[in-house]
Design a binder for these strands. Sequence first.
DNA 1: ATTTAATTTCGATGATTAGCTAAATACCAA
DNA 2: TTGGTATTTAGCTAATCATCGAAATTAAAT
Lengths: 109, 109
Amino acid sequence: MNAVFKALADPTRRKVLELLRKQPMTAGELADHFPVSRPTMSAHFAVLREADLIESTKIGTTITYHLKLSVLEDALLGFARLFGTEAPNATANATQAIEPGHAQKGSTQ
Amino acid sequence: MNAVFKALADPTRRKVLELLRKQPMTAGELADHFPVSRPTMSAHFAVLREADLIESTKIGTTITYHLKLSVLEDALLGFARLFGTEAPNATANATQAIEPGHAQKGSTQ
DNA sequence: ATTTAATTTCGATGATTAGCTAAATACCAA
DNA sequence: TTGGTATTTAGCTAATCATCGAAATTAAAT
């Protein structure tokens, strides 16, 4: 969890995650969204990989990254839970909030 | 929001927030929970203050810190919302989840 | 076999950060 | 005023970090 928060501390990396939320992207495509060099972006990817927030698949010479949303959720929720006054269903609610995409439970509204 | 994530990147500071969730505490009491010097703790407090995550009140020579939960919420939720597939009511749910005890929003701190 | 393309690793640099001790500040009590 | 307590500021060091250009790697294309 420390690794996740460390990874989240940099705005470039947060933006990468945000881009990756919409769809998987190659390292080059991602890099095109930022005004820094390829090696710098590669280092950011390494930090995100280290935190287990993204995963890579290689096809030919191209590396595609995709978000591991559940890891992000778990870290955020694990932390958020420390601040809820021990409401047992807090987790379920917040999971809906963060990941309504594939948390398709019968939502309360 | 960047300041908040930067502040959250350090485990000592996260622990401080966690302690402060239970009750306000003085700088000295907080410091007693960590194996680092007072000045170091003071620097951590400064970072948290800078991120607007804590607030201090001074009585005599003693400084009491308390958590500004709503700021923490807003940052976490603002970020989490980026990862929800555009569910507009996600915020309301997660706010409940994180702060079920005192869910009054426009708090006058 | 060469060249080209995508990405990472290497090595260096400047900036930021966490930590320390010592000193300063602010306040209270005697 | 002198002394003591709580906390911060100052000044420093060591470690970590974001960044770069150059070189290495890997695979495809000619």
